[in-house]
Design a protein around this nucleic acid. Sequence first.
DNA 1: TACGGTATGTTTACGGTGCTAACAAAGCAT
DNA 2: ATGCTTTGTTAGCACCGTAAACATACCGTA
Lengths: 191, 191
Amino acid sequence: MSTSEKSSYHHGDLRATLLSTAMEMLEGGEPFSLRAIARQAGVSPTAPYRHFKDRDALESALAVEGFRDLLADLDGGRGLPASLPDLAEFAVAYVAFALRRPALFRVMFGKPCDDADDERIKAADALHELLADALDRVFPDADASALATAGWGLAHGLASLYLDGKLQAASGEEVANRVRGAFLAIASVGS
Amino acid sequence: MSTSEKSSYHHGDLRATLLSTAMEMLEGGEPFSLRAIARQAGVSPTAPYRHFKDRDALESALAVEGFRDLLADLDGGRGLPASLPDLAEFAVAYVAFALRRPALFRVMFGKPCDDADDERIKAADALHELLADALDRVFPDADASALATAGWGLAHGLASLYLDGKLQAASGEEVANRVRGAFLAIASVGS
DNA sequence: TACGGTATGTTTACGGTGCTAACAAAGCAT
DNA sequence: ATGCTTTGTTAGCACCGTAAACATACCGTA
């Protein structure tokens, strides 16, 4: 019950502290380096290496947090979608997450992530499965897998394009409307 | 007429040389730094700064090249699409470009590009217009703008997800099939 | 309770980066 | 020929990620 006491050596809870300060810097728009995190946490520049193999490992941990939060945003907010407009709201929430936490989103998606980070891969898979469930529920007759890929791709693409300034919109509300519009427009195309 | 002669000072054509060696390194999968480019070009580490304000400026120039190539891939290859399957092939070509030149694709899209780089913005806009034209031609009755956004978003999202390993496929052919599948699946949903 | 191993943090050091400032050489216009 | 401008060079700054050697505190066991 003395987690807040420090002996000034042996910080006591460095790993968690590093993660949370890293997340804060990420949200705050600061560039984020291992050294900066250590500095912020009041610890020596190489202390983080006792808890993370390298920068990638730290980023993976952050990405896992991000996936958890994104899932919560999508799922918790409104439950699984039951209609096409619900799906559009899913996409809106997805894009909103990306724009609200741009640096985190880039950490989550901006790299091959080829390292065999179990947790990270699991987190991304969970997202995919959630989407597949959702799509299957709305369009039970269609090829759920292809549709889930398409839906994810659409949402992710819009998120990326807005995030990187290739599509522009003044307000978050305008982005939401455009995303809704895109989602409904594409679904209204009866071959 | 002596562009290939050198006085050993005053390289003569450094800017172009820097761009091409940068592009080569990008395609070759090497990390790419200003200093590495200079090294490769046989010139001092800070010489590039006479031709590019900073790293971003060099990247912008590369991005412009990339957009030109991507447009050529989409347009030149098969002309403007006239049907939904043609559109799917557009998407396939888009994703293929991203997977064939991943580092370039990241340079083109992975950043806000908020600097007022005229050429770069123009290049991206040209892409958007091409897509809008294409979509309008295939679906003259629909909201061309919303559809173009949706189509671009879908293609771009699939490209990003495959590129960053969030979706996986063994071969390029498999990717192409999945992209086609996603495109057709989403279009076969009659609200 | 003393002890020794292990976990955690520190110091030092290396090579890399982007970038600036001061300097040098070549080209060009007068 | 002379001087301005362009283009290159060298030196140096602050930062980064990372490894190695060292120091300290914790924790289980004798």
